[in-house]
Design a protein around this nucleic acid. Sequence first.
DNA 1: ATAACTTAATTAAACGTTTGTTTAGTTTTA
DNA 2: TAAAACTAAACAAACGTTTAATTAAGTTAT
Lengths: 214, 214
Amino acid sequence: MIEEKQEFSEKQRHILEIAERLFATNGYEGTSVRDIAHEAGVNIAMISYYFGSKEKLLQSVFEMRVQFIQVQLESMLSNEQLSPLEKVYQFLDNFVERMMNQQQFHKIMVREQIAQKYEPITKLILDAKKRNQELVKKLITDGQKKGVFKKNVDLSLVLITVIGTANQMISTQHIYREINNLEHLSDEDFQKLIRKRLSVHLKTLFKAILTYEQ
Amino acid sequence: MIEEKQEFSEKQRHILEIAERLFATNGYEGTSVRDIAHEAGVNIAMISYYFGSKEKLLQSVFEMRVQFIQVQLESMLSNEQLSPLEKVYQFLDNFVERMMNQQQFHKIMVREQIAQKYEPITKLILDAKKRNQELVKKLITDGQKKGVFKKNVDLSLVLITVIGTANQMISTQHIYREINNLEHLSDEDFQKLIRKRLSVHLKTLFKAILTYEQ
DNA sequence: ATAACTTAATTAAACGTTTGTTTAGTTTTA
DNA sequence: TAAAACTAAACAAACGTTTAATTAAGTTAT
């Protein structure tokens, strides 16, 4: 029987999820420890008790969420059955799903990568991005060797578009909803819709940038 | 002699620019009125005296910057010399230049469109986006009528990519710089470089999404 | 099995700072 | 000499964190 490592207790995870939501909507400085404690239904002192400080609480939110890609993608990469383009598509699907499932967290990410105020978090973000880029780079160079992808692609710039598009969609989905008259949809259906559209859109983009075919 | 409407005095504009920079880097809640006053070299009370409150100060920053597109683009649109694609290119150049010239302000925008905390500002952003989209829509449908652009383009999604890419570049330019080993460049040269690359990149994207040609 | 003891969880209250804003007074400008 | 610009000081409220005390849970000894 394998004992799973429980980094945080159930109660701690509850606090972390509340904190994540509040940090996402109000920002780190815009959220008070009292707000978090109140919404989580715990005493204010518990947050220092469990996490040490407000800043370490934010760090803990990051730790909770940065299980990131790593394992999932490694196996995909080594699958020799798939064509380079198929691999890229699968990566994009995976990416969109991850982003949409963790919207609150990615809102925090957007803020923090602007602010760069808390060193350990800045470092976490940078490392994750580098790792991400290395993985995609393998995908791309693989496709280039096989002659399916163009050479001279600014990979960083392509990733900025992919991540930027997802971030922008997450940040301004209410506007997208209003402008396109999608208010009649349930929240759930709307989420499904933009997830699907985002996925298709990013694939189209990637194909257009990377391949010769039309 | 035409008297230009001076919305803000020179001293006020100085405060607004300091506030803009601090709001951009530390966020609205992360910036204290004392910080702003100190950096601007004025007494704290002057901020209430001039702008009424901290929140109205933020609003004033928006007012100062929302001279936006409007006039510039209208004339471009009506220029019958240009092909639809050339018009789109010109729009993109204009867009990138505006974004890069007002990076601080756009960092605030990114935060505020996530937060949606201050009603008047949320409304300002929404209106600007709608106006923006209407203008581009004219450009696109014009090109569609002439048979140069594809039909069935999700314009909102395309704009999300354009704006999202620019926002992401502005937010994570330090990472782009490090990953691509561009630290030897002067700040000025680096800014020029990413402005150019962003411009080219967005044009490529637009062309790939909108046109049939390769 | 229960009493004795230890550690962990939880609480209300208080701590010293910092927050945005206002006041009452002074200096500068027209 | 009236209005505008500016200042230092004070305001209450909110902030993150700590304290000291209490309750709950877990362990050991008998």
